[in-house]
Each structure stands twice: as C-alpha cells, then as structure tokens.
C-alpha cells in the first residue's frame, strides 16, 4: 500500500504496551501538549532536528550542508531555525560527531507492515501483535486506518494507544479494526486539562463513552500519574468512578518519569517540569489499592 505515514519509531519486542510480545509503531503528530511528555518529538508531524549539544565538536559542517537557512553559525556553534527546516537530513548525514539526528521517517504502510510482520511468530506465541502509538495515531487518520486494515488482513492483533482527542467519525470508522484500546485519561477537570495540556475533556470522555458502549472490555484506561497535576486521591478516584460507570474494568497507572527530559533540549524547547522528581512503582501503591477496592483491575507499570 502506497499510503504514507510519518513514523517516529518502530520498536520491536515491546512488552509493556498490551498483551504479549508486540511491535509498537510510534506515529508523529499529537493535538495535546502534555508538559511531562517523554516523547516530545512525537508531538509535531514534521521531521525534526534533534541536536545534542554535548556531542557537537563545532565543525559547522551542518551549517554548510543546509540549503534552507535552517542552521546558521553563531560564535562557532550551530543555531537552528527550525521553521525553515524541511527535514532533508543533510545536516545529520554530514555531522561527524552524531550530534544531529532527525526524528521522523516517511514510510509506506507496506514498509511498516514488512517490518512488523517479521516478528509474527513471536506475536503468535504470546498473544501479542502490533501497538500503534504516538503522538496521537489518529492524527494521520487515513494512513493509520490503512495500517489497521492491513493488520486485520494479516490477522495481527492490533492495540491502539490514544489520547481520545480525535473526531468521533474517525473513532467510529477505525473501531472495528482495533482489538484493544489503551486510552489515556489524564484528568477529570476540563479546565485543568485544557490549561495544562491543551486537552479537550468533553471530546475525550465522549469518545470513551462511545467506545465503552460498543465493548468496554476492549478498553484499558491509562493514567500517567504526575505530581502536582493529577497525583491526588480525588482525581484518580474520579477516574475510577468514571471507569465503573462505563463498565470499564482495566486501569493502568504509569508513574511519572523524566527520562525524556533531555529530548526537549535537543528539540530546542524548554521542559517545564524540571523540578519534579521521578516516581517509583511503590509511590502508586495506595492509588492502586483504592482502585482494587472498587473491583477494578489496576496495574502499575514501572
């Protein structure tokens, strides 16, 4: 299939995003801007320069290689004018120190499928399959749908990780091809979510309700637990209550981590969460207990 997608990464032997051994395809583009996002390069649809300053030897070959005035030399160091960048990768190619990397690769559905199908034996042995993640995979809807259809054709189990902030008709169209949803719910207060992450809660909850009416067992609610944002009893319990109401049984809590922090600097954007410490699995045990007490299946990822 010639349908093209902007791919951030294809990660094989993925064992934390759904049942069994899986391959996770991370697609670029996301409508939300969560400040704790550990894959900030997944937010933009565009190919992006990721520049690691500590590796740069100041040779300035990149400035000469760029034909789009996206890199200029300032006091012996490259400075990036990212709006001019077209993602041609020339700078990364000439960089001898591997200080520049381009995030994003255009791939056809066939190319993605070829890579994903290489591990089919492992999926079959473990009940695994493909997980399409992001960003928000629905952002590139046409290609995403084509990918899902291709998976169905090959008998692959398909999980999708979504923010839920997507048009209803897209959800409705894709739903028959999706075996399970990993559905992010970050907060139950529309204003807080809007202000913090540019999230539109009514749309997110509306879509969730829609899916739950079709089949609540296909859904796992995922909650990234973020100190100072939603790491509060009332917020998490609110999510649990909503899950119960929609007859959704599975909730997965993800402790906040800072391992994506350096990527912000590489993308030339600031990380607004710098002060917060990483959470441990144990920090979420009380929240887990509260969920278990409500007869929900609550897991805590590491």
């Amino acid at each position: 299939m010639e349908q093209k997608l902007e791919v951030m990464e294809i990660q094989k032997f993925s064992v934390h995003d759904g049942e069994g051994i899986r391959t996770t395809v991370f697609l670029k583009g996301c409508p939300l801007r969560c400040p704790w996002c550990s894959n900030p390069e997944s937010q933009s649809l565009k190919k992006q320069v990721m520049y690691t300053e500590s590796k740069c030897i100041g040779c300035l070959k990149c400035t000469k290689a760029c034909r789009y005035n996206a890199i200029l030399a300032v006091e012996g160091r490259p400075v990036f004018y990212r709006n001019n960048c077209v993602g041609c990768k020339e700078c990364a190619r000439v960089c001898p120190a591997e200080a520049i990397r381009i995030s994003g690769k255009t791939m056809t559905v066939d190319e993605i499928m070829e890579s994903v199908l290489k591990d089919k034996d492992y999926y079959e042995a473990t009940g695994g399959g493909i997980t399409v993640s992001g960003g928000e995979p629905f952002t590139q809807f046409e290609g995403f749908l084509a990918l899902l259809k291709a998976c169905k054709e090959k008998g692959l189990n398909a999980a999708v990780e979504t923010t839920g902030q997507v048009p209803r008709k897209h959800i409705a169209e894709a739903e028959p091809y999706i075996d399970s949803f990993l559905y992010d719910i970050k907060h139950m207060n529309a204003q807080v979510l809007k202000k913090t992450a540019e999230g539109i809660l009514p749309e997110i909850l509306g879509n969730l309700k829609y899916l739950a009416e079709i089949n609540p067992d296909k859904i796992t609610i995922r909650v990234p637990v973020i100190p100072g944002f939603n790491m509060k009893e009332e917020v998490i319990n609110g999510i649990y209550d909503m899950a119960l109401e929609l007859k959704i049984k599975k909730v997965s809590l993800l402790p906040y981590h800072t391992l994506g922090k350096d990527k912000y600097a590489r993308l030339g954007i600031s990380y607004s969460m710098q002060e917060e410490k990483m959470l441990e699995k144990n920090d979420l045990i009380p929240f887990q207990r509260a969920g278990l007490a409500r007869n929900l299946t609550v897991t805590v990822s590491e």
Binding site: F13, S14, H16, T24, S38, T52, H257, L259, D262, E302
Partner: peptide, 20 residues
C-alpha cells in the same frame, strides 16, 4: 534493560540515561 515503559539495549542509550 528496562528503561521506563520500554526496554532497550543498554549500550545504545544516551550517557545520561545510562547513568539514570
């Protein structure tokens, strides 16, 4: 190694993540 939410070949990770 288990990083967080994903696994990786340790020596391919960035130095700071390795330290972490």
């Amino acid at each position: 190694v288990r990083v967080s939410g994903f696994s990786a070949v340790f020596v391919n990770l960035e130095a700071d993540i390795q330290q972490e």
